[in-house]
Amino acid sequence: MTLRRFFLPVVALLAGTQVLAAQGVVVAPHAVYLDHRTRSAAITLYNPGAEPVEVSISAFYAYPVTDSLGQFTLETPDSVTAGMPSAAAWIRAFPRIMTVPPLARQTVRLLAQPPAGLPDGEYWSLVLIAAKGGSLPVSAGDTAGISVGLTLEVRTIIPLTYRKGAVVTGLALSGLHATPAGDSLAIRVHAERQGSAAYIGTARGALRDAAGKVVGSFSEPVAIYYQAEPTFAIARQGLPAGRYQLTVEFTNERTDLMPEQLLKGPPVRDSLEVTLP
């Protein structure tokens, strides 16, 4: 063999990948972090379906809070005022509108163009990825009659965080309490963010019997932007009546995020004696 020979390499990218009879896109990562030094990040979109998908990207300002039931929901202010740490107005997506072919991926670059003199701190936005694909199949209608079918569209919202300068985070817990709710033990705790950045981490809880044995537990990712009073649940089926020790711990650990993206802070813990009827 010599280097004179000519052979065009043909590599079937993603050959063998399963084609889904669905429409939508895969978005990765599911949380975007930018800093003032690089001011850019990228998200990868992948179309697992058999039809092209039209995708548009936009940004808006909102942050998670908890409702009266302790469930996380988004708080979207009616208007963004000067005191709000919003990055939505100065985040740009390139491209902003695109078509992703079947089984293809598309890189979208997110660039930050913050205003001059932006104070040190952490700024937030949400990135909305709207995907509109080919219609899903519906049954063929009787041409002389009435046939009805609805296709499905999807939008994915992921958080974006922009950091400038040194930012710190922490958490203060208070008001830990637990209430039997059906076959579960509903646990709530007031969590208030400390420092200048959102607290991104994991909440873990353990219920121990009198012998110290763990009889129930939970582990959930949490994002405390200001304050929240989330509800967690531990199954109590089969647990005999009596006294138990409940411990709750929040740490900055997350298995789904890059370690370098997480701000480190000391774990915070609280505990409570619980009596089950």
């Binding site: 429409q23 896109v25 990765a28 990562p29 599911h30 694909g133 899903l136 999807v154």
Partner: peptide, 8 residues
């Protein structure tokens, strides 16, 4: 980690 939302 990715997030996938599809109309199935």
């Amino acid at each position: 980690q990715a997030m996938t939302v599809t109309g199935a």
